[in-house]
Structure formats: structure tokens, C-alpha cells
Simulated scan of single mutants.
Amino acid sequence: MRTARWAAVILVGIGVLAYSAWLLEFVLSTGLSPLHDPAWRLLTAEPVFRTAHLVAGIAFLFGGPPMIRLAPVHWTGRLSAGAITVFGAIVLAETAFPGNVVIEVLTNLAFVAGCVGVVLWWPSRWRTFAAIGLGLVLVTWLGVVVLGQFGPDHFLGLLTRIQLLIRAILLAAGVAYVLRFTPGGSHS
């Protein structure tokens, strides 16, 4: 279990860092508007973003199986841990096909499934955080869908970057939970 824990922490941690590489747009010249251009356009703006996204996808894809091993046997734990593996595969697909609507929907569905799993699995202190995260995932997804109907220049960039931030925070919370998890002990 110790090896699985460290494998999960390291791989998902690398995934979170690489997935957060979009923050580099504030120091690199991309020619994109963080307010209006959707975040997925970064994948075609500079090779560093596509490379970081690829690293994130691989890290999540391989970080999911150790998370599944650490998760309780019941379906809620398996759902949330398995969602990380699915998310990794979706991130890899997004790297190859940026801006694909089906991939965007699948990304959000993976996060909703993962959040639902942890809301039903984690103990109360952690569950509250996960429930807030689930609400934010749903609200930002709805916002992206609504703003997307208006076309460019309607703060779609801002909302998609908020989505990326929320996802990174939720994944980092999963890593923190694994670090605090004590096999055979409490799940505080």
C-alpha cells in the first residue's frame, strides 16, 4: 500500500503541476486573450502548453490505477479514483484534438463523476470541500455552455481558466487526502 500511495501522490501531483502550466501564459507571449480566448487555444499557441498537457494526461492516466488500489472497495471510492484514469485519457485526447466539443463534455462528465464519488465517500470535513467543488464544476460548466452560445469575446477565456483552476485544486485535494489517509486507521 505504501508504494501505491507514493505512486499515486507523485503521478497525480505531476499531473496537477503539468495541468496548471496554463498559468505560464501570464509570462509567455501567446497572442491570446486570457479573458476572451478559451483556454484550449493555448494548446495550439505554444508548444510548451501542448507538451505540458501531454505530460499531465500521461501522469493522470498512470496515477489513476494506484489511486484505485488505495480507494475503498465500494463503488464510490472506485468511481472517484477511476475518474482520474479516465480524465488522463481525455486530457491526452484533448492534446491531440484541442477544442473538440465531445472531449470538453467528457472532461466535465469525468469531473462530475469523480466529485460525486468523493462527496459520497470522503468523511464530513473533506466531503464539504468536495461538495463545493462539485457545485463549482457544474456552475462553470453551465457558464461555459451559455457563454459559448454568444461566440468569442464574451469572457469565455476567463471562465475556462476558472474551470482549469477548480480542476487543479480538486485534484490537489485528492492528493492531500491520499497523504492523510492511514490504512487501517482513520480517514480524517
Rank of each mutant, 00 (worst) to 15 (best):
S124P: 06
F150D: 06
R78A: 10
L24F: 13
G77S: 07
A45F: 03
G133A: 11
L24K: 08
M1I: 03
T30Y: 11
G88D: 11
V144Q: 12
G148R: 04
A21T: 11
N100H: 09
G57A: 13
I68N: 03
N100D: 14
T3M: 09
A81D: 14
A8W: 03
L165G: 14
V105I: 15
L43R: 10
L170A: 13
A130W: 08
F150Y: 15
P34F: 10
L42N: 06
R78M: 14
L11G: 00
F62R: 05
S188A: 14
L109I: 15
Q163V: 15
L35S: 06
V55G: 04
A93T: 11
L158D: 07
G135Q: 02
V12L: 01
L147D: 02
W22Q: 04
Q149F: 04
L164P: 04
G117L: 14
G31K: 07
V112Q: 12
A71F: 06
V9T: 02
F26M: 03
V175G: 06
Q149V: 04
A131C: 01
I162E: 05
L158V: 08
S124R: 14
F26N: 05
L23Y: 12
L32P: 03
A45S: 14
V118P: 01
H187P: 01
F62L: 15
G63P: 00
H154V: 07
G174R: 05
L170E: 09
I103V: 13
F97N: 11
V144D: 02
L32G: 04
T3V: 08
T107R: 14
